[in-house]
Amino acid sequence: MAWQRISDTDRQVLHDEVAGLPSEQPNDDIESRLFDLTALRLQLALIEADTGDFERHRKRVVELAGLLEEKSNVPAVKEQLGLRAAVQEAQWWEGTNLELLEDLRLRLRGLVRLLERKERTVIYTNFQDEVRDIRDEDVVPMPKMTGAQYEKKVREYLKNHQDHLVIHRLRTNQPLTETDLEGLEQTLSEIGDEDGPRLLNDLLERNGAPSLAWFVRSLVGMDRSAAQEAFAEFLNDRSLSPDQIRFVEMIVDQLTARGVMPPEALYEPPFTRLHHAGPDELFTGKEDVVEAVFQQIETIHEGIQTRAG
């Protein structure tokens, strides 16, 4: 009979098209299942009143919610905007219960897989604990705010308080006093409550900022009028060619958007679109102008290079 002599091709067709059982369902991705595990441990910690375990797993959820901010253009992530924002606030956790945690699990479990693997700084573990003996230990205080939460709050504060005296001075390229810098440092530290000084220091280190003033200006940018005033000598120089004037205008554009600009950026796009060899060739015969431009950039950065205190 034909069924007793199955060819390799027929066997492959049976394997691919027939062999699967009707009850088979595709498995969830590992990220969703690991998030389920974290949610379960949160629920267990809540039931057992284990504040240490609860705080550890809570921080993992908050970290993931913060990372999802960068995926807000994805419709599924956008739908959970309210929940993602809420879980990053301490108030949401103060009155949480098992039902809320289960709702959290169901609504976020399918989103964590959208994160790039390099973004997943959260580490899941599933080790079997071995209890050897029991001894009393001092309780290790857990931070109330993660670095990602703190950075988000700082960025929001700076965005919404550009009329703050010190921030305004930074934007308009006015000199800052030591008192100005110390006041700004205190204001941003207070955003992180008792962990503020440590969180602020970590934030500056993560962003490679040489000072707080540098970091703040890099976020709020420079006022365009202030940047134009700083380079007015070149913008009004009628001896410069249109491309040379455009080069100076691009410096103003960059400072307006970014607040700070290392001199080596003048040898990179978008500046090299005017001349591939950079300002030295673009300003051939006007070496004094190039030197003055570099000096002006250095002058703009003076006063924001050193940390307060």
Results as ranks from 00 to 15, higher is better:
Leu219Trp: 09
Thr121Val: 03
Pro22Phe: 04
Ala49Ile: 01
Glu137Pro: 00
Leu81Ser: 14
Asp133Gly: 01
Ala90Phe: 10
Ile251Thr: 04
Leu181Asn: 06
Arg224Trp: 14
Thr272Trp: 13
Glu69Val: 04
Ile300Gly: 00
Val140Phe: 08
Val18Leu: 15
Asp138Phe: 13
Asp180Pro: 07
Ser32Gln: 09
Ala39His: 02
Thr272Ser: 08
Arg33Lys: 14
Ala86Gly: 01
Arg84Ile: 01
Leu115Asp: 02
Ala227Asn: 08
Gly208Pro: 00
Phe231Cys: 03
Ser7Ile: 03
Arg60Pro: 00
Leu14His: 13
Leu170Cys: 08
Val74Pro: 03
Asp195His: 06
Gln88Phe: 01
Leu181Pro: 02
Arg132Phe: 07
Ser23Met: 11
Arg258Thr: 05
Trp93Tyr: 12
Leu101Ser: 00
Gly309Asp: 10
Thr284Val: 09
Val216Phe: 06
Gln149His: 05
Leu165Ala: 12
Gly192His: 09
Ser32Arg: 03
Arg132Gly: 10
Asn27Gln: 12
Ser211Cys: 05
Gln80Arg: 15
Arg41Phe: 05
Asp28Pro: 02
Thr172Ile: 01
Val131Lys: 12
Ser225Asp: 12
Arg107Pro: 03
Gln228Leu: 10
Asp53Leu: 12
Leu176Val: 08
Ala213Arg: 06
Val122Phe: 08
Ala85Thr: 12
Thr177Asp: 12
Leu212Lys: 11
Ile191Trp: 04
Gln295Phe: 15
Ser239Asp: 14
Met142Phe: 10
Glu63Ala: 03
Asp195Leu: 05
Leu108Glu: 13
Glu298Val: 06
Pro269Ser: 07
Phe231Thr: 03
Gln305Ser: 14
Arg60Glu: 15
Ala213Gln: 10
Thr179His: 06
Ser218Ile: 10
Lys59Arg: 15
Asp29Leu: 09
Lys152Gln: 14
Val252Phe: 07
Thr125Gln: 12
Gly82Ser: 15
